[in-house]
C-alpha cells in the first residue's frame, strides 16, 4: 500500500496541494475545538461525581464513547462527500483532466490516487480526534483494544463511502453537484437501505393480511421472504459500525442475549436466527461486502473515465 501511495503522482500532488491550503488547518482547528468542548464536558461530569463522592458510573462513559463515535460517523457521512465529490470534477472544471488522461498513468491509477488522497485527508481529521476519544480510557471504561476495534470500523466506513464519492465525481461534471449527489448516495445507503428493508417487510406482511392486522408485521410466519431484505443492510455502513460498537463496547438496548445486528434480528425476524453465520458475523461479512463494493465502484469510476476514448472502428472506410 505504501508503495502504491508513494508512487502515485496524483496522490502525492493532491496531498501536497491539500497540505498547502488553509482549509486543512481550519478543518483541523474547528473539529478539534468541538471535540475539546465535548472532552471538557466529559471531564466536568466525571469530576462532579468525584466531588460528590458518588461511585463513578463506568457504563455512562461507554455511552459517552458510543455517542462520540456516532457523532464521528455523522461527521464522516458529511465530510466524505464534500471531500471526494469534487476530486475528479475539480480536475474537469480546472481543465486538467484531459492532460492527465494523456499521460502514461492508467485510468485506475488516477482514480486510485484521487481516492487515496481523499481517504487520507479524512483519516487525518479522524486521527486528530483520537486523543479526545481516549479521554474515556482514563477512567478505564473501555480498553485500548476496544478503541482500536471501533476506529477500524470507522476507517472502513470512510473507505467505503469515499468510493461512492469518487464514482459520483466521475459521473457528474460540476463539483458542487458531484458533492451533493455523493451526499444523497450516502444518505440513501444509511437511511434508504433501512427504509427499503422496512418497505419489503411491510409488503411481505401485507401479503399475509392476518399477520399484518395482528400488528406483528415483522413476524410474518407464512410469507417470510421479507426477512432476507435484512441482507440489504450489509450495504449500510451504519449497521457494521453499530455491530462493532455494540459487540465491543455495548449499547445493550435491543436484546439481553445478543449484541449488535444479531440482537436486532433476534427481535424482528422469524426466519433468520441470531446464530446464523451471516448474522452472527455481521460486521466481518459487512466489511467484506463493503470493501468489494468499494473496489467495484473504483473500477467503475476508472471505466467511466475511459468511457469517452474507448470504442473506435479501426480503418473503416467512410464513403459519405
Amino acid at each position: 500500500m505504501q508503495k502504491i501511495m508513494l508512487k502515485n503522482p496524483v496522490f502525492l500532488k493532491d496531498i501536497s496541494i491539500k497540505a498547502k491550503r488553509s482549509r486543512m488547518a481550519v478543518s483541523l482547528f474547528v473539529i478539534n475545538v468541538l471535540a475539546s468542548l465535548v472532552a471538557i464536558f466529559i471531564l466536568f461530569i466525571s469530576n462532579a461525581g468525584m466531588v460528590s463522592m458518588d461511585p463513578m458510573d463506568l457504563q455512562a462513559f461507554t455511552w459517552i464513547f458510543d455517542g462520540f463515535i456516532i457523532v464521528e460517523c455523522a461527521f464522516v457521512c458529511l465530510m466524505v462527500p464534500s471531500e471526494t465529490g469534487p476530486s475528479i470534477a475539480n480536475e474537469r472544471e480546472r481543465q486538467t483532466l484531459d492532460v492527465l488522461l494523456t499521460t502514461k498513468m492508467s485510468h485506475f491509477d488516477i482514480i486510485l490516487g484521487k481516492y487515496l488522497s481523499s481517504v487520507a485527508y479524512t483519516l487525518l481529521l479522524l486521527v486528530s480526534l483520537l486523543p479526545f476519544l481516549s479521554v474515556v480510557l482514563i477512567y478505564g471504561s473501555i480498553s485500548f483494544i476496544q478503541l482500536v476495534g471501533v476506529m477500524l470500523a470507522v476507517i472502513e466506513t470512510v473507505m467505503y463511502l469515499s468510493a461512492f464519492g469518487i464514482l459520483y465525481s466521475t459521473l457528474v461534471k460540476k463539483s458542487s453537484r458531484a458533492s451533493a449527489s455523493a451526499l444523497a448516495v450516502v444518505f440513501l445507503l444509511v437511511f434508504g437501505t433501512i427504509f427499503l428493508c422496512l418497505i419489503i417487510h411491510l409488503i411481505a406482511a401485507a401479503a399475509n393480511s392476518g399477520n399484518y392486522y395482528n400488528g406483528r408485521i415483522f413476524k410474518a410466519n407464512i410469507f417470510n421472504t421479507g426477512d432476507f431484505s435484512f441482507f440489504l443492510l450489509y450495504f449500510n455502513p451504519a449497521t457494521t459500525v453499530f455491530d462493532v460498537l455494540d459487540k465491543i463496547v455495548g449499547f445493550d438496548i435491543f436484546s439481553d442475549n445478543y449484541h449488535g445486528m444479531a440482537g436486532i434480528i433476534a427481535e424482528t425476524s422469524s426466519v433468520l436466527t441470531p446464530d446464523n453465520f451471516f448474522v452472527k458475523h455481521w460486521a466481518p461479512v459487512g466489511f467484506v461486502v463493503q470493501i468489494i463494493t468499494a473496489f467495484y465502484m473504483l473500477k467503475l469510476s476508472a471505466a467511466k473515465l475511459a468511457g469517452n476514448t474507448r470504442r473506435v472502428k479501426l480503418g473503416k472506410k467512410n464513403n459519405n
Binding site: 503522482p9 502525492l12 501536497s16 491550503r21 494523456t102 499521460t103 502514461k104
Partner: peptide
C-alpha cells in the same frame, strides 16, 4: 499535447508541476 487551455494546478510551483507530470511518466 498542449490543449487550448492552460490546465495548470495553481497551488503547485512550476517545478512541482513538472515533477508531478514526470511522476505520471514514471
Amino acid at each position: 499535447y498542449v490543449p487550448d487551455f492552460f490546465g495548470v494546478y495553481a497551488d503547485l510551483t512550476a517545478s512541482e508541476y513538472l515533477h508531478f507530470f514526470a511522476g505520471a511518466y514514471n
